[in-house]
């Protein structure tokens, strides 16, 4: 008797679970569930100072091996040429809503005041790795470019292609000017390797890994994310519904 009831109960649970799939297929329900991202962002921003720092670690707390993920080698002709020249010809474009567009080499990035930080990288999948990153603060670069007040987001365009289009990501001005947001060209006291985004990647430490765009080519200040990609602010946000606010 109990067995039959248990069977009915678990069958019911299965139906309820598949019911969730049918329910979220309704646009109205989907909109409500997807509002969770905005609620978390509002709550987190209310609970933390604008410049609250992500935890930093000591050198002995680093992961012995820092795994790679996403693109491990862009492999395009352009990237291969830059790589063959040890990135001497690589230039980072800083443009968009700025008074003075910049074209920066690795040497130029080294001229800015540097920030080094040992932080934890959290992948959306669940794993974490701790490593040391070094580079100029994005905020200093944007200031030098004379970013305009109208700018609300900063968009990062990368050398690696997904479905023929460059990987891209974006952050708002709070994260763009956060003291730990850097354009990292060194990892664990060496030049960034190809697997981790050579020659330069974003570190935006209060967010999950997919926000930390690798293989940076262009930094663009914009007033809206509409019209860029599919308008959701990043490759994964556009194509598989990842949260744009990845502090969760």
């Amino acid at each position: 008797m109990i067995r039959r009831r248990t069977l009915i109960a678990s069958g019911g649970a299965g139906l309820l679970l598949s019911g969730c799939d049918r329910v979220i297929a309704q646009p109205q329900v989907r909109d409500i569930i997807f509002k969770g991202e905005d609620m978390h962002r509002a709550l987190q921003r209310a609970l933390m100072n604008r410049d609250a720092l992500a935890p930093e670690f000591t050198p002995d707390q680093r992961s012995p091996y820092f795994r790679t993920n996403g693109t491990r080698d862009p492999g395009t002709a352009e990237y291969n040429a830059l790589r063959a020249g040890r990135f001497a010809d690589w230039r980072l474009q800083v443009d968009g809503l700025v008074a003075r567009p910049l074209t920066l080499s690795l040497t130029d990035l080294g001229q800015f005041p540097q920030r080094a930080q040992i932080t934890r990288h959290d992948c959306v999948e669940g794993w974490s790795a701790i490593g040391k990153w070094q580079g100029p603060k994005l905020g200093d670069v944007l200031k030098q470019a004379g970013v305009r007040d109208a700018a609300r987001f900063v968009v990062f365009t990368c050398a690696d292609l997904y479905g023929g289009a460059p990987y891209y990501e974006s952050v708002d001005m709070v994260d763009a000017f956060h003291p730990q947001t850097i354009l990292a060209w060194a990892m664990n006291d060496r030049f960034l390797d190809v697997g981790h985004g050579a020659p330069c990647r974003l570190r935006v430490e209060r967010h999950l890994g997919y926000k930390h765009a690798k293989y940076l080519m262009r930094v663009t200040a914009v007033d809206s994310l509409a019209g860029i990609g599919k308008g959701q602010g990043g490759y994964w946000e556009d194509n598989v519904d990842y949260d744009w606010y990845a502090g969760i």
Binding site: L17, F34, E37, M39, V124, W236, V240
Partner: peptide, 18 residues
């Protein structure tokens, strides 16, 4: 036993975080 039934990390997270 999973939501959604077919593996989809983004949608699992949307449900979970809401």
């Amino acid at each position: 036993v999973t939501i959604p039934q077919n593996y989809n990390l983004a949608i699992s997270r949307r449900w979970h975080l809401f």
